[in-house]
Design a protein around this nucleic acid. Sequence first.
DNA 1: CGACACATGTAACACGTTACATGATTTG
DNA 2: CAAATCATGTAACGTGTTACATGTGTCG
Lengths: 171, 171
Amino acid sequence: MLKYVLLGLLAASPRHGYQLKQAIEEHFHGAWPVNTGQVYTTLDRLERDGLVEREVVPQDLAPDRRVCSVTAAGRLELKTWLLEPVDGPVRLKDELFAKALVHRITGDRRGLDAVWKQREAHLQNMAALTRLLRPDLDPTTRLLLDGAILRLQADLEWLDRWERLEEEHDR
Amino acid sequence: MLKYVLLGLLAASPRHGYQLKQAIEEHFHGAWPVNTGQVYTTLDRLERDGLVEREVVPQDLAPDRRVCSVTAAGRLELKTWLLEPVDGPVRLKDELFAKALVHRITGDRRGLDAVWKQREAHLQNMAALTRLLRPDLDPTTRLLLDGAILRLQADLEWLDRWERLEEEHDR
DNA sequence: CGACACATGTAACACGTTACATGATTTG
DNA sequence: CAAATCATGTAACGTGTTACATGTGTCG
């Protein structure tokens, strides 16, 4: 997935690896921690597949930089990805759902503990996100934050249902 | 993540690989397609790490089966995972969000297309999920389906916001 | 007989994570 | 000077995906 974000950033303007990492962390407001190493290995694969080109720009004194840009094939690949909706089959494959399932399968009586801890964690995440919502925020970043908040709200609603189910079970 | 689902199923009762695959597909109502091969490689790792034990049960005529059961270490690992809330930092790292971001970064004027296609896909998924909601459903499976539906609803709400942003942009 | 479910696996590859290594420049 | 930031990378490992290989039992 990082692959496409890199292509997108490079389609806007050529950059070198470190700039890409910075751009992502800026857009996602630090909430998508990117490992630098992964950026370079992903760029290696993209270059190998002919989706980006790299040009070595020698610096005097400073270490050389390798500036990347998207090829025609890269733009095509990006366009295809952009117009393709995410994931046809449904997303039950999720860690939170998996935990609920395993709690109920094993009947371990700790389901309620898990619900409470998860709610606590979600509420803290919600608070952290809400703190980021300043009016001067870039509208795109704002959109992404809103998305994360909406999903957290949905999960909180769902945690209530899980809790009710666990309570029935205990009776 | 499959790792923990396998541990959970085995904690309920020992089984062999194929039974595990079947159990998962049953619980997730086919909405988590498990590759059989992955079950075996994951079991190999679990055995290597001392979390499960395998006993070969020879069958006459039929091929031997290798029945797995959880070790004490496996139960501990499972318990730890179950009580640990999912993912401390926030989930902006998401394919749908990434697409929205890249659309806006590249300013490609195809954002609205993407929103519409995604909404269409989400609505179809929603319909498919709703069809599965029969009253005789196992309450746990029902819980998981409800979760998926709640998240889809959140996403649909968010798609409206994205659409509004794209419309502003076009003006 | 042919198709399908049962049952086990291997191989290659993609992607992500963590950690480490290296060295220059800037700033307190 | 020390620390942080800039900039590039390698290595090891975990997990997941796709595809293939192999063989038996059952049912129409």
